[in-house]
Amino acid sequence: MPNTYGNRTLTEWLTLVLGVVIVLVGLFFVIGGAQLAMLGGSVYYLICGVVLVASGVFMVLGRTLGAFLYLGALAYTWVWSLWEVGFSPVDLLPRDFGPTLLGILVVLTIPVLRRLETRRTLRGAI
């Protein structure tokens, strides 16, 4: 039986932690976003939250798809925020700064996730 979690390197652990963080953020988005949508507010948080939860789960599972889902959510975030407030730095700050910072970390995990996937494929082949 392939043991995905054995013999992890530091970067792999950090990737796992990042995945968990993204799941938690995603859950906050889903719960808060559902409330907001029900109150007649923006549906962005709910939609984005669903994608983030999926993204984080896949990252925890060591799947590259998780990283790409996050980058997809980030692209959606930028498009949405520019639509909502235009090129206003002070308004883009809360909407995009944190997510973009996380996005940089997510990009850094792509090689790690690839390695995990390769290892899993090799194990699967054996």
């Binding site: 808060g32 109150l39 007649g40 507010g41 809360p94 909407r95």
Partner: peptide, 22 residues
């Protein structure tokens, strides 16, 4: 407006958007 809500991150901004709508 709801879009005037602010924060350090989308998390606290979301909190304020809910507060605004409530």
């Amino acid at each position: 407006k709801e879009t005037d809500m602010w924060g350090m991150s989308p998390l606290d901004q979301l909190f304020c958007r809910i507060k605004f709508r409530r």
